[in-house]
Design a protein around this nucleic acid. Sequence first.
DNA 1: ATGGTCGAGTATCGA
Length: 257
Amino acid sequence: MRIATWNVNSLKARMERVPEWLGYAQPDVLCLQETKLADAAFPHLAFQALGYESVHHGSGQWNGVAILSRVGLESPVCGFADGGEPDQDTRLVTARCGGVSVLSVYVPNGRAVGSGHFAYKLAWLARLRRHLEAVASPADAVAVCGDFNVAPADQDVWDPKVFEGSTHVTPEEREGLSELLSWGLVDAFRGVWPDEKLYSYWDYRAGDFHEHRGMRIDLVLVSRSLAGKLQWALVDRNARKGKFPSDHAPVLVDVEL
DNA sequence: ATGGTCGAGTATCGA
């Protein structure tokens, strides 16, 4: 099974590139973030014509997440299922695809260290773990896919010095991610490529992509049962090139089921 | 030279 995740930075703006990418990358499951669409505007039919069922959780303008699957899509859940108050944002959708519990997540950016948005980001990460506890067991086949807005290690940013004091690299954010991993998840890309410095996001400005000034913040986290069956992982940098790209590249992982 | 670019929507804000 090929599982992929892609922050598309507006699905409306990416409706040429996403179907094109499905055609050549052939994922079985694709998690999308930042669709920036209301549910009524999500192009279910266009994806159905390509063989994908889909579930979307969005409110328009900001955020918005989806799961596309050509191996079945059952028991969709929008937002947190931990019994708490509904999230103010549309950042999480969960579904069962081909025997795997799949989560598409868009962790808040945090904006500035110490801000209210930063506190919301940390709380959101902690709540994601509680959601996971509510919907799955670590012994299950689980894939938590998305834009985490956290670079797990200094290896995952082009120049750690530039990011000192900034979001995405603080000990608090990395601790939040570690707490999530400690539920029973493995960073699939890093498992396949322990030493590579490869990124999944590059700012549009200043030619950052061509200068290799990026961060690896888009992750596929798999439970141990899937981690043992990892075949391959890839950041598709080609999808960041050319006309009208997202500022993120898709990350894909192959597991033998 | 201290910006640079996108996408939302149509003045700025968010990333």
